[in-house]
Simulated scan of single mutants.
Amino acid sequence: MAVYDTNRTAPESAILFGRIGAAICTVISAVSVWNDARITRNALSALSDRELEDIGLNRGEIDLIAHRKGSF
């Protein structure tokens, strides 16, 4: 019975593809956050001033709320 043992590290191509994959994931995440903010902004913009007042907002706060949605 023969045994083959090696201590090689990952090939450079695997490291490169890992970095490319990480970059793609970062871009997808950024697009997802932007889209969530867009949907929130559109939904709040469709409300009347009275409805916004009922939930404690005004038109000037819509962008702030849309961008901070995930941090509450």
Results as ranks from 00 to 15, higher is better:
Ala2Gln: 11
Val3Trp: 04
Asp5Asn: 02
Thr6Gln: 09
Arg8Ala: 12
Arg8Val: 07
Thr9Trp: 11
Pro11Tyr: 10
Pro11Ile: 00
Glu12Ser: 11
Glu12Asp: 11
Ser13Ala: 13
Ala14His: 11
Ala14Ile: 06
Ile15Asp: 12
Phe17Gln: 13
Gly18Lys: 03
Gly18Ile: 01
Gly18Arg: 10
Gly18Glu: 11
Gly18Ser: 14
Arg19Tyr: 08
Arg19Trp: 03
Arg19Glu: 15
Arg19Met: 04
Gly21Tyr: 00
Ala22His: 10
Ala23Tyr: 02
Ile28Pro: 04
Ile28Arg: 14
Ala30Val: 05
Ala30Trp: 05
Ala30Ile: 05
Val31Thr: 06
Val31Glu: 09
Trp34Pro: 00
Asp36Cys: 07
Ala37Ser: 15
Arg38Lys: 15
Arg38Gly: 03
Ile39Pro: 03
Thr40Gly: 05
Thr40Met: 15
Asn42Tyr: 08
Asn42Glu: 15
Ser45Ile: 02
Leu47Glu: 05
Ser48Met: 01
Ser48Cys: 03
Asp49Arg: 01
Asp49Lys: 01
Glu51Leu: 01
Glu51Cys: 00
Leu52Pro: 00
Leu52Trp: 04
Asp54Ile: 06
Ile55Cys: 01
Ile55Leu: 03
Ile55Arg: 01
Gly60His: 02
Gly60Trp: 04
Glu61Trp: 05
Glu61Val: 01
Ile65Lys: 14
Ile65Phe: 14
Ala66Glu: 04
Ala66His: 03
His67Lys: 11
His67Gly: 07
Arg68Lys: 13
Lys69Ile: 15
Gly70Tyr: 06
Ser71Asn: 07
Ser71Cys: 03
Ser71Pro: 03
Phe72Cys: 07
